[in-house]
């Protein structure tokens, strides 16, 4: 790891002013479980780490009639154990438990999970987010792309969005709050994820001197939600496909649905096609199957990942059936 200077601001305003206005100079340091690995591998080499863990405003979980508010520094473990989360957002609680090993959950923060960098092995080995060879040819097209995107992969970005918690939060209509030198802003969480078109861009709508301050989730006691991951290893592994769904029912029929897939595209992928396919339907093996087929209708596999199309279909179908049969619990 290269050397850096270390500062621990105690307010959000201090943190923002200690961050540089361009990428590469400074990094926000929270749980550190992803950042330190990237620095050890020399993928990132900031001159300054801004440790935000002393900022009290970024802590805490509250739940009231407006819903859930989670400070960005909340540990994944703490949040998974929160009684309100377990009771009112069971699919989120499940995603949090599945997200990482106990040691990581004791350190990793929600803000950091949402901001973690892609697990693409080209990126992690220093070839950049949009890896190319010296002639400008995209490396992933003919390379080992077994874990890469099957949707929205026609641009230079072929990595998959790494957070397993983002899809379920998006299904619950969560918003993310940011603070930077120009003040505060709030985005629907799905808008926080962008597909970079050049190597100088990142995959988040986050300025280099902005910090994630909190995540808010509207009440969801009227929703049937579920989260489903397909992994090679049962516990503590990066998934091959993730699906998160939230259904609002009118009697036995779907009034509105949100279907979000993870690990299929450079961003958490909302499937309008699946949502339309479910409209006014009751959830059965057959309708879940059709919605899953619709969700992957536009999938385009790369040379080594066509298996992911079927896995993603199965994830969507099983998430729908799980939600309809009572959700995550």
């Amino acid at each position: 790891m290269r050397s850096f200077e270390y500062v621990s601001p105690t307010t959000k305003a201090q943190a923002v002013s200690l961050l540089a206005g361009n990428w590469g100079q400074t990094e926000v340091f929270a749980g550190g479980t992803d950042l330190l690995a990237l620095m050890k591998d020399d993928v990132l080499a900031p001159k300054r780490l801004v440790n935000i863990k002393q900022i009290k405003d970024l802590q805490g979980v509250t739940y009231n009639a407006q819903g859930l508010r989670v400070g960005a520094l909340t540990n994944l473990g703490e949040l998974a154990d929160d009684a309100n989360v377990k009771k009112n957002y069971p699919a989120l609680a499940e995603a949090l438990i599945e997200a990482a090993s106990p040691q990581i959950r004791n350190m990793a923060t929600l803000g950091g999970n949402l901001c973690q960098r892609p697990r693409c092995w080209y990126f992690r080995n220093g070839f950049g987010l949009l890896p190319k060879d010296e002639t400008g040819k995209e490396l992933i097209i003919e390379g080992d792309n077994r874990y890469h995107a099957i949707l929205a992969n026609d641009g230079p970005a072929k990595f998959v969005s790494p957070s397993t918690i983002a899809p379920v939060l998006i299904a619950y209509a969560a918003k993310i709050r940011l603070e930077g030198p120009k003040g505060k802003r709030e985005l629907p969480l799905e808008k926080f994820y962008v597909v970079p078109k050049t190597e100088t861009e990142r995959e988040h709508d986050l300025q280099p001197n902005e910090i994630v301050t909190e995540v808010v989730v509207p009440p969801a006691t009227d929703a049937k939600a579920a989260h489903y991951e397909i992994r090679q290893k049962e516990a503590f592994d990066w998934p091959l496909a993730v699906a998160a769904v939230a259904l609002r029912m009118n009697g036995s029929n779907v009034q509105s649905a949100r279907v979000v897939m993870g690990y299929v595209a450079p961003v958490p992928w909302i499937s309008m096609e699946a949502e339309q396919a479910l409209s006014s339907q009751n959830i059965s093996e057959d309708t879940a199957q059709r919605a899953a087929a619709a969700a992957l209708r536009n999938a385009k596999a790369l040379s080594h990942n066509s298996y992911k199309v079927q896995l993603a279909r199965v994830a969507v179908k099983r998430a729908l059936l799980k939600a309809a049969s009572g959700g995550a619990a």
Partner: peptide, 29 residues
């Protein structure tokens, strides 16, 4: 180059930068 922070070179004692009008100690590198 960092946008708002201003270096306060001190001859002795801990290094500090001013951030949002307050002193923040700098450790390392």
């Amino acid at each position: 180059i960092s946008s708002i922070s201003v270096a306060v070179p001190l001859v002795t004692g801990p290094k500090v930068v001013f951030a949002a009008g307050e002193q923040v100690p700098v450790h390392g590198p």
